[in-house]
């Protein structure tokens, strides 16, 4: 089973990103679960969202404490929260930041696993004209962890947004995912 934790701030779409990832994995024939930690749901408050992907039905209903993948949607959260807590030796950390993976490693004193960085905020502003970093983060997560496929992820975004928000929004999201997929840096 793969467990993914997405850490963001309320309103940044961490919960939706975890749900889209789960839906894409379901589309790919996996068993899935996605949920988030609810507290005081204020815009800007730190929010943990989770996604589990497995080959067999998922029955566990407790929180994710040892994720295989951690994605940090908001760069300021690496300083505010213990984002690498529970991440295994082979764990993957993906951070939305302008910094390099090495800079993040140094900052967090994180020597194991794999670290990826991507300027999801910059890509989001280029594509949408505002900061909606969750879809570029999905592209980066896919490049870093290969949980689904880029194709399925893009299809899922289309399915979800086309009816409600139209082709233009779908295209921008697909573009953001592709850019992040290509631009994410490993180190």
């Amino acid at each position: 089973m793969k467990e993914v934790t997405i850490i963001g701030r309320g309103g940044q779409g961490g919960k939706s990103a975890a749900a889209i990832l789960a839906e894409a994995a379901l589309e790919n024939g996996h068993y899935i679960q996605s949920f988030s930690e609810y507290g005081a749901e204020r815009q800007g408050a730190p929010v943990y969202a989770f996604c589990r992907i497995d080959e067999k039905p998922i029955r566990i209903h407790s929180s994710v404490t040892n994720p295989d993948v951690v994605a940090v949607i908001d760069p300021t959260l690496t300083a505010a929260l213990p984002v690498t807590k529970g991440l295994s030796d082979e764990g993957i950390l993906i951070v939305n930041t302008l910094e390099t993976p090495q800079q993040i490693r140094d900052k967090l004193n994180f020597t194991k696993g794999k670290v990826f960085t991507v300027d999801a905020t910059g890509i989001s502003i280029d594509c949408f004209g505002r900061n909606i970093p969750n879809s570029p983060m999905l592209g980066a997560i896919e490049k870093a962890a290969s949980l689904v496929t880029l194709e399925v992820l893009k299809n899922k975004i289309s399915d979800k947004f086309l009816h409600k928000l139209g082709q233009e929004v779908v295209d921008k999201n697909v573009q953001a995912i592709e850019r992040a997929f290509n631009e994410v840096k490993e180190g």
Binding site: I32, S34, F35, I58, H61
Partner: peptide, 8 residues
């Protein structure tokens, strides 16, 4: 746990 969790 169940009401807001997404499952197949």
């Amino acid at each position: 746990i169940t009401s807001h969790g997404i499952e197949p």
